[in-house]
Design a protein around this nucleic acid. Sequence first.
RNA 1: GCGCUCAUCGUCUAGCCUGGUCUAGGACACCGCCCUUUCACGGCGGCGACGGGGGUUCGAAUCCCCCUGGGCGUACCA
Length: 464
Amino acid sequence: MSELRVRFAPSPTGHLHIGGARTALFNYLLARKEQGTFVLRIEDTDVARSTQESVDAILDAMKWLGFTCDEGPVYQSERFELYREKIDQLVSEGKAYRCYCRQDELDQKREAAQAKGLKPKYDGTCRDRSDHPENTPYVIRFRSPLSGETSFNDRVKGVITFSNDELDDLIIQRTDGTPTYNFVVVVDDATMNITLVLRGDDHINNTPRQIVMYKALGYPVPDFAHVPMILGSDKTRLSKRHGATSVMAYRDMGYLPEALVNYLVRLGWSHGDDEIFSMEELIEKFSLDNIGRSASVFNPDKLLWLNAHYIKTGHSQRLADLLKEYMQAAGIETSKGPNLVAVVKTLQERARTMVEMAEAARFYFADTVEVDPSAAEKFLTADKKPVLGAVIRHLHLLKQADEVSIGKTFDTIMEETGLKLGKIGPSVRVALTGSTSSPGIYEVISVLGIEESCRRLQRIQESL
RNA sequence: GCGCUCAUCGUCUAGCCUGGUCUAGGACACCGCCCUUUCACGGCGGCGACGGGGGUUCGAAUCCCCCUGGGCGUACCA
């Protein structure tokens, strides 16, 4: 174990999305690579917006992606006592104060300031107030330094400096007594001994506010690393408008977790010209040094390509287990019919997602294949009756349903009929699969078995 | 508006720190050819970028400045 302690701290106000997943991945990889500790923390201080469903959804997605944490999940909602203690400490030390300003007043002041082109920060009305009005709701604000500057050496962006007069007297405790994000994140990262805060660069602006709080609380300041955002095709922050953003939606669309991981890691991180990485390779090769500084656009096509790659190269038994679930979801009964592993092997090079594979596998399990009308019109014409008859006859003679034997049988058929495969194959294919595009016909016959193949051919042949 | 930040093919990126080996490399997508019983896979090839302007230098994608453009933030959200 090294000293490195990192964390992923999602707020349970929705599913785990693409951006969060990448942040989690980077934290996970770094922890594994440095043999540090990966902590999962649920940021649920906003009681109104946090839900158990979201917590479960996030946990499920983390598990599906294979990001196992070493500690947690830790729930902030269970640590309110600690936060209260720290807030009391700050107040008694004069580092935080009660603010009795009403929200509508603040909104007005903010708008007014903005209209005049001034900074929309808290005007400090209650900053030096010493009276404590009875029965008046209040929040607790952090007393932020008014001058000087705060800077930190970001591990991906370099030195970043803020003038302290940009900082606001942040609310750290709401009227209802619950603490807010910028405060709890400091208390938690400090008390959980997080040594590196690795998160999205939308948090850069929060960092100086948090640093002054670390100092006020007497905590050591951790390292920070801010990774660039993932944008949609229109270069704005990725959102539902750009299509699926939920990790689990990708599973439902037939993506493999290793494809998503591989895609996500290449968004912002690189290792020379390499494109394909297993989790093991990532753990070995990942480094903060190779994280880019600019935002990147989510490209579904490349993810699809990676998914196709992992389907192509995946173990057919595992894929067969998965395929079963996707076929069930598509309402296709697989308990009867050909062996799923054999089916998978004929489809691995043809399917880019498991959903596509399930669809492509449909014909294998159909009692009566649904024949595409235009394919039938072209290849299942009456003049094909004798050829199909010959195919059925010769297939019946076959003892073994392996592709080589089937190939030899077709050689014989071609010899006997004097027809080339181009004149026979398409009709057989359509009769067997209902479509003009399918795995090789020898493969299909082999997987279907002689009996079932002949049954299908017979049915078509008789109807001609 | 203000603050922070970013800037290489349409997209993801290598190269930038340690200027010359860059007529800028790889990948996705797209186009063409080959392979082929269909569809795919695969192979080969093509298209395609250093945002603009100044500097520094014998020499700049690489260093400096300005401009432009983009992103993020500016909550009793996280």
